[in-house]
Design a binder for these strands. Structure first.
Lengths: 344, 344
DNA sequence: TTGTAAGCGTTATCAC
DNA sequence: GTGATAACGCTTACAA
């Protein structure tokens, strides 16, 4: 087993001082040509690599960024993560991920773990529970310590920091508007219980589109489902007992499931009922019929978040006080597929 | 901005030495009751938290584990990751993820970055390119340095280390056997090009099942598709021009796509053609018809890998030389759904 | 009971 | 040109 070699080893072996070795390896002008060559050759031979931890301690920079997301087995978060990871990596940063599992406590614990020196900044989407509790002290503490923070998707007005969101309200509005333009009149909504931030905004957009086009807003055309738990009974009853010609769903899982239920009830998609989902993932592309869906551009979102964060991290030293925070809005786009084909 | 406080600050403030503070905060018997209380109160007040980096440097343990996977927007890897993350977190470890993107170079770079002190051990699945090149020097170096490594799913015999795999060959064998038992006789295979390890094993299982049941092995009933790129033309031609009554696919994406194509060609699933996929993910549950699929138990796999790794990490100090490596086999299970219903 | 000092691996400043 | 020294934040023998 060849253990990792340190400056000290090289110094001892070549009978020079540690600082000489350090400088030689940085090709410093101070060091004589022959000594440099000798040291560099030795270092190469033994495959010397500086110890990241020691450098972190010295520089007070870890070159790590902490990402805390509610769930990892989830297309959207995964996509955002890829955007973060790619950008960060290109900039020489590593990414430490923690999953809050929608739990407030886990979010707090993970944040505290990472905040004690492990990372230079955070990128996160709030846990559902955190949004419900409306308790953001853990975020406040972190920002007060001067650790840069970027929130994405699941954000809050309570915290002043950089944010990246999509135009949820508008995207839903535009999707519904399109349905209306194609002749649909009885448009239902399938959304989540418990009012996650984003679902709430999408719901607003849905209502606004109806109102602005003089369509009646019927509360009984709105179905609220639990966020993760499967509950097909409720959906079946909903679709069986109501008349509608289009459905907006706040995510693609709800949409694909609903399409399945509706088709089993003998209705045709899109002829009888059109469907639009959010989160343009693999399900949308592979369902039958393929699903028209709002693409949230997760990867771009992640990249944007990472860019904002790294920007803050690397400029932190000078402008101490002139805190200026930005909210970037990623414009969602509607990807049209079979589930909304045709004019009614 | 309240900057993070250190032992030194506390010591200076309370006019004691750093070591006294350190000991007091660990509730050491050495320190007098009143001093302890004074120090602890002060620390609590200013919310003192030890700096992880300093501790890492001291202990030569980072409490981080490095995970390198080919892709993150991928149900199976994501599931494994969740298993790793949960177990690791419960044991007080954080997880640093790097994505190799199926690239050999990225895999090497990421490994080297992390190996220089950032992590205590690796869990990884090999990049496709790495398996093709058959070059594992980066893994060798890491293990020779005494950094524990656990490979999962995409493994290699070239490296001696702990491994976690599923019984791919057997799982495919059993799936095909089941198809045969239900009366299917002309069974096709949809697999990946380039022979990823796992696909190759599944292919073997497919062949073995046919042979053992006296069915003819027809090479033209085997379709090889590119791993990621969409190429529907090829599939369409395949299904249009051949007669078959069942299909085994090496992943659920291939399966769901194929089902779509076949249905568009006017055939019924499962009446005319039965389908079985691998990777029991969300697609399998939500496709129409729902897909019978081999559950690879990713989460268990991740948890197992994390357990093996942490075990090695925490026992490294004593048994230096008596290297004993283990290969855990997770038994895949067939989840039967609509796509294989009924007897022919 | 408290403090001093060395050490983890590096870098930077200053002396020789 | 080269080396000693201090520092990053913490732990821990060992002194006092």
């Amino acid at each position: 087993m060849k253990r990792k070699i340190t400056l000290k080893h090289i110094a001892r072996e070549l009978d020079v001082s540690i600082s000489t070795v350090s400088k030689a390896l940085k090709n410093s002008e101070e060091i004589g040509q022959d000594t440099k060559e000798k040291i560099q050759a030795f270092a190469r031979l033994y495959n010397y690599r500086p110890n990241n931890i020691a450098i972190s301690l010295k520089n007070k920079k870890t070159k790590n960024i902490g990402v805390i997301i509610p769930d990892i087995v989830h297309h959207f978060f995964t996509t955002v993560f890829r955007g973060i990871e790619q950008y960060a990596n290109a900039k020489g940063y590593n990414v430490i991920v923690c999953v809050s599992d929608e739990s407030f406590d886990k979010e707090v614990i993970n944040m505290e773990m990472l905040a004690n020196g492990s990372i230079d900044g955070f990128i996160m989407a709030l846990a559902g529970e955190t949004q419900l509790k409306n308790d953001y002290n853990h975020l406040k503490e972190v920002t007060e310590q001067g650790i840069p923070l970027v929130l994405f998707d699941r954000v809050t007005d309570e915290i002043h920091c950089d944010k990246v969101i999509i135009n949820d309200e508008e995207a839903a509005y535009l999707a519904v508007k399109k349905l209306i333009a194609s002749g649909r009149k009885k448009i239902a909504l399938v959304t989540t219980e418990g009012y996650l931030n984003v679902s709430a905004k999408r719901t607003e957009g849905y209502y606004r589109a109806l109102r602005e086009h003089g369509l009646e807003v019927k509360p009984d055309l709105v179905l609220e489902l639990p966020y993760q738990k499967e509950d097909d009974k409720k959906s079946e009853a909903f679709f069986k007992n109501r008349s509608m010609d289009a459905v907006l769903c706040v995510n693609e899982i709800f949409a694909v499931k609903s399409m399945g239920i509706v088709q089993r009830l003998g209705k045709r998609v899109p002829e009888d009922i059109a469907f639009v989902g959010f989160t343009d993932g693999i399900l949308s592309r592979l369902s039958t019929p393929t699903l028209t869906s709002v693409d949230q551009h997760g990867e771009l979102m992640g990249e944007t978040a990472a860019r904002m964060l790294i920007e803050k991290i690397e400029n932190d030293h000078d402008q101490e006080e002139e805190e200026s925070y930005e909210t970037q809005i990623i414009r969602a786009t509607l990807v049209e597929r079979e589930s909304t084909l045709g004019q009614v």
